[in-house]
Design a protein around this nucleic acid. Structure first.
Lengths: 186, 186
DNA sequence: GTGAAACCTTGATCTCAATCAAGGATTACA
DNA sequence: TGTAATCCTTGATTGAGATCAAGGTTTCAC
């Protein structure tokens, strides 16, 4: 049983029939080297990806600076959601931070399956709820004034990120410079 | 035809049958004076509310300070979503910024209707998608460094907020002091 | 294994928004 | 309509994090 099957059936609790229906449409693996783009700015995101191995960063250019807005790592889904959902060109770009292997499912297949299998639709609804709650938590993190406190919150919520991702990206994600992160980690 | 019916059928494009099913469970109006609480910290949010008239603020205490994280006004839904969805005590509190009239639907009724009417479930899914995209946009706003730029983004996206809500709340929402907002509005 | 690139740390300086303060304008409601 | 409370504005000062700079360390690819 491969990682995606395990993810769908065990982690997401999807019944076999639905898991199989999804798996049939998942495409052949894609490998990216560090620095390689999964999605570029201006490009429409036509796939939802599952990361089999590696680490990725989601970026957005704010006021001419590259800002990190999220990470991806093994056993998580990744894509430019606004672009995937709205079928618009993406403002975000997604890059491999280390060699990464992914598989994707096309938007058209995905939304068709939502219509065909109410359990998949229900699962997607629950995932959207979770994603929304995650964003709401993230908002509090960003509103927190003290850099030290922002670091602490991330350490509590996602300690593994500090093992996986270079600090300079984490600093950007936490709305501070690498210097400030360094000075507040001790 | 009242405002909620219009909202469900026209704005949300819900068929009559489903709109009626929802409407039956919507409870009698509730009026709050300026400063009155819709939801308190620590209280479980058991209802989803529709604002018929007035303005509301969603607050969160960060590092002992009251932080505004959102607004509500006529013809929008409001509640402490994390609490409503997860059935946990709310970290947020919701207060009327002016005299406000609302009607609510109980969580249990709401989720039962989701199960009974796939069109309602589908609509809720779409609303969650929209809410998620809204949060993602909001994240970029918060990551923007320059206060002037943050103000500009809100002015572009939601100019009506500046008509409805006192500037001091908007300042907090934009992660700045009222002084900074004032100095950067001209 | 080795060299080059990427990353982290520490120090010195600077900048811009927060804070403190006070007067004036609006708003709410009795 | 009067009056108190709330809100907005402007000025002066302060402080925390950004920036600039440079040395040392780790990581990665070949």
């Amino acid at each position: 049983m491969d990682a995606l099957t395990r993810y769908l059936e065990q982690q997401l609790q999807l019944p076999q029939e639905e898991a199989h229906a999804l798996l049939r449409h998942w495409q052949k693996p894609k490998t990216l080297k560090r620095g390689g783009f999964l999605t570029r700015q201006g490009q429409v995101e036509n796939h939802l990806y599952y990361i089999q191995e590696g680490t990725m960063g989601i970026f957005y250019d704010i006021e001419e600076n590259e800002q990190v807005v999220g990470f991806g790592y093994a056993d998580t889904l990744i894509c430019s959601f606004p672009s995937f959902i709205r079928n618009y060109p993406s403002d975000y770009y997604i890059q491999a931070l280390s060699t990464t292997e992914l598989i994707g499912i096309a938007r058209s297949d995905f939304y068709r399956l939502l219509g065909e299998y109410s359990r998949i639709e229900h699962l997607w609804l629950q995932m959207l709820e979770e994603a929304l709650l995650g964003r709401i938590e993230r908002e509090i993190d960003l509103l927190t004034v003290s850099p030290r406190e922002r670091i602490q919150r991330l350490l509590n919520r996602s300690p593994h990120i500090f093992q996986l991702i270079p600090n300079k990206y984490i600093a950007s994600y936490l709305r501070m410079t690498p210097e400030t992160l360094s000075r507040n980690m001790k």
